[in-house]
Design a protein around this nucleic acid. Structure first.
Lengths: 109, 109
DNA sequence: TTTCTGTATCGTAATATTACGATAAATATA
DNA sequence: TATATTTATCGTAATATTACGATACAGAAA
């Protein structure tokens, strides 16, 4: 137990859940907001911006990278991260389908 | 450790993360889709529809209820669940702000 | 009242997540 | 070459999540 039973769900449900889980943490939301706002990519400035240890930030970046939401390129000693457009678009698509399926109707209860 | 440092993030970041975390599981996505599609509310039919034990479904419903995404009313022996419109709207708003802030530009790396 | 039905809760095992210090690895600079 | 800078990884402690059997609880039906 303690293990999500992915095999009983559709790949779309699993995919959306995986992407959402990657975003469902305030630190990772903050990281993404930083990457977006400094539209040029950001590096380890994140450690200064947020109040988390360098190892923790690196771990969060790894999670975002693993699901493909961000991508990084090495620039000398530093690493430059940015949003991966295709995954971002996929997230918007899946979420749009999901959220849009609820047509705010007669709330029945 | 092992405890998210919510105090260093904005309430908006924390709120969005909390809502997303509630949704970021395939079983809870499936539950919400069932509730939405049978626009009349659904009860413990969820146990038949999904392949999870009754205790597990009840636990997932509790999580969705705790963050206010669904609401339930007792109907005799059964319980009728439906989407809570205001929380759903809040989620759409916060997510729209967040996802919309990325303007798919010159992916810099 | 007794019994059945639907749901919630308790307890628990397996696993995952979060955070961080310490350290390694890689590149730049002196 | 030696040293500093930046990032990744390892190890680990604290906590959270997922799933389920067992059981409790409440209302309906017999």
């Amino acid at each position: 137990m303690g293990l999500t039973k992915t095999e009983i769900f559709t790949s779309e449900q699993n995919q959306l859940a995986t992407l959402l889980k990657a975003i469902a943490h305030p630190a990772r939301i903050a990281i993404l907001q930083q990457i977006i706002s400094t539209n040029a990519c950001i590096c380890g400035d994140l450690v200064d911006e947020l109040g988390l240890a360098q190892a923790t930030i690196s771990q969060h970046l790894k999670e975002l990278k693993n699901v493909g939401i961000i991508q990084g390129t090495i620039e000398g000693v530093k690493v430059c991260y940015c949003i991966a457009p295709s995954t971002w678009a996929m997230l918007e698509l899946l979420l749009g389908n999901f959220l849009g399926s609820y047509k705010n109707p007669k709330s029945c209860c």
